[in-house]
Amino acid sequence: MSSHATTAEGEAPQFYELVPHHHAPHGSTQIGFWIYLMSDCLIFASLFAIYGVLGGNFAAGPSPEHLFNLQLVAVSTGALLLSSITYGFAMLDMDEGKKTGTLVWLVITGILGAVFLGLTLYEFYHMIHEGAVPQRSAFLSAFFVLVGTHALHVTFGILWLVTLLVQIGAKGLIPANKIRVQCLSMFWHFLDVIWIGVFTVVYLMGMLR
């Protein structure tokens, strides 16, 4: 009935597209990947909530000021921060179509990520060696889950980065590879954002507690 009224006004309603509507290839990849990152954000939010609730339950075990080495954390934070801007330079070189420049900056980013991962694993090894294992107290369980999940993300980011290096090396800067580099860029910067939360809440506030 309402459609009748609309046509009566002289404007024929048009419910289909006369001109073919082309979506650019991979046009929706970025928003899809962004939604994934937001869901990943919720995982980290729940892990932060767990750490916030349990972070003070030491069960007469070691507390942050006995375990954490802020110099080490400062170095690994610096490595991750530097890797953010080197990834940015890789993106800029990619936009200018410089394949070698993109590869070089990506390799530097990967090395910095590996440095960060190495320092985190060294810290874990050191803590476990001192008997500060995840099952020692609720604080340590929450700590290892939160920082471990972040380290796992960095690990997969580095694996992805190595895969991309091979793909760009083989096929060049084709549109599909450009989309992949852009998605990894979002992932990499997102991990840096999570790390800001980790070093603020876990390390810095842990030392103040």
């Binding site: 979506h23 650019a24 290839p25 046009g27 990849t29 549109p175 450009k178 989309i179």
Partner: peptide, 8 residues
Amino acid sequence: AHPNPDAH
């Protein structure tokens, strides 16, 4: 010259 995937 550069096909922009975000042209949509």
